[in-house]
């Protein structure tokens, strides 16, 4: 294949661009130019996770304290207060779910757990510091047989059917998969 002057100049230009790029990349010793403009992704994520954990610990401390002294009703009211400042927060739903189940409002409690997991999957993630897998597994172990048998004997009960669907959702999320 014959090369004219245009081809040769283009080839030289291409080789130059490749060489300069390689020089920049290799010469940087792996340094990322973005370093100059802020922290790394890993740092940002670690910060975010720790800030989130600290924020929840502080915000929900009164609720946890009330639960520790066996005052679930007052804890529930406290959550209502928190909800005014942080509407639709998954952690509120998670704690409320636990209280409602403990108080005997099983269907409503299960619904709150589902709301929590749907908006923050961390609660079923083994890697997350927020995970509550054991608590949700315990809920499934105790509630599923009860709700299943009640739903079978009352097939028209929408609340029970919804609770059964919710429990199956939690079961599926605990089982893993890619989503």
């Amino acid at each position: 294949m014959s090369r004219d002057r245009f081809d040769i100049l283009t080839l030289i230009g291409l080789a130059g661009v490749v060489l300069v790029t390689l020089f920049l990349l290799l010469g940087s010793g792996g340094r990322d130019l973005r370093l100059a403009s802020g922290p790394s992704q890993a740092t940002e994520r670690a910060l975010q996770e720790r800030a989130q954990a600290a924020f929840f610990a502080e915000t929900y401390a009164p609720v946890e304290e009330l639960l520790a002294v066996n005052k679930p009703g007052e804890a529930l009211l406290r959550l209502e207060q928190i909800e005014r400042d942080l509407p639709a927060e998954a952690h509120t739903a998670l704690l409320r779910g636990g209280i409602l189940v403990r108080q005997g409002a099983l269907v409503e409690g299960i619904g709150e757990y589902v709301r929590a997991v749907r908006s923050r999957a961390d609660y079923v993630d083994t890697r997350s510091p927020l995970q509550r897998r054991a608590e949700i597994e315990q809920l499934l172990a105790t509630a599923l047989p009860v709700v299943q048998s009640q739903a079978q004997t009352n097939p028209d009960n929408q609340g029970l059917n919804r609770a059964l669907r919710d429990l199956h959702y939690l079961q599926s999320r605990l089982a893993g998969g890619c989503e």
């Binding site: 792996g30 990322d32 790394s40 992704q41 994520r45 999957a121 961390d122 993630d125 890697r127 989503e179």
Partner: peptide, 17 residues
């Protein structure tokens, strides 16, 4: 292999598995 900083890698969730 190089994992430059602009690449996003999940630390939790299914992509972390």
């Amino acid at each position: 292999f190089v994992q430059p900083l602009f690449l996003l890698i999940s630390t939790r969730g299914s992509a972390a598995e």
